[in-house]
Amino acid sequence: MAGRPPFPPFDAGTAAQKVQAAEDAWNTRDPERVSLAYTEDSVWRNRDRHVQGRADIVAFLTEKWEHELDYALRKELWSFTTDRIAVRFQYECHDAAGQWYRSYGNELWEFTEDGLMRRREASINDRPISESERRIFGPRPEDERGVPFPVW
């Protein structure tokens, strides 16, 4: 089967693998690479923005990472069903003026049988932080995989 493993139906192990794969991809900050995990007509709600299709996903992520500098993300499996996954996440980045932010969010994902995401809904809140408050530095080290992160 072509597509993006692991494939539904998910169990705890494959759902966790899907979440870690998403985290790894997003931490590349490569819009083209990230977009390949989504169906050609994938539908997103990201904060107050609505995005549809891979071309829009690439444009959205390109714009995002032009403004959210040194972006580093952590995702954690919250819940799953056979073809849906709920995730909580945190990421840190700074703007061009050097102000750092920690963003907290929840995502709801729905997958096709070939493991591509057809729907993504993200609710996100941002909190300004000082550089000394940072705790996410680049991609997750191997020894931190599967380790929950603090709520704040």
Rank of each mutant, 00 (worst) to 15 (best):
G115I: 05
M1A: 12
M117H: 10
A25W: 01
C93P: 03
R120K: 12
S130N: 13
W65E: 02
P8D: 11
P141T: 10
K75W: 08
E121R: 10
G138C: 05
S42M: 06
R135A: 11
R33Q: 14
A21M: 11
W100F: 10
M117G: 13
E113H: 11
Q52C: 01
G3R: 06
S79W: 13
H67R: 15
Y101D: 04
I57F: 01
T14M: 07
A12I: 09
Y71K: 06
A72G: 08
E121N: 06
N27P: 00
A12F: 10
Q90Y: 07
E107V: 04
L73H: 11
D30A: 12
V19Q: 00
D48L: 09
A21K: 12
W44R: 00
P150T: 09
A22S: 14
L36R: 15
T112R: 14
M117Y: 06
D70M: 07
A25Q: 03
L73D: 04
I57K: 01
G105K: 12
A22Q: 09
R88V: 05
Y91P: 02
S42A: 15
E113P: 08
W26G: 00
W78N: 04
L36D: 10
T28F: 05
R33S: 08
A86T: 11
H94M: 11
R74T: 04
R54A: 05
P148I: 06
A2T: 14
A72H: 04
A122S: 13
V151E: 10
A59C: 00
P150F: 12
Y104M: 10
A97N: 08
A22R: 14
E76H: 14
R84V: 00
A12Y: 05
Y38C: 01
G3K: 10
T62K: 15
D126F: 14
G105I: 07
L108K: 07
N27L: 05
K64I: 07
R119A: 14
Q17W: 05
A86H: 05
S103I: 07
D83C: 06
E113S: 12
E110Q: 11
T62A: 12
N106S: 15
E63K: 14
K18E: 00
R135M: 15
M1L: 09
R134E: 07
A86N: 04
D143G: 05
S123P: 04
E133Y: 14
N125I: 15
T39R: 08
H67I: 07
F149N: 03
D41F: 03
R118E: 01
L116V: 03
R120W: 03
D83I: 04
W65Y: 09
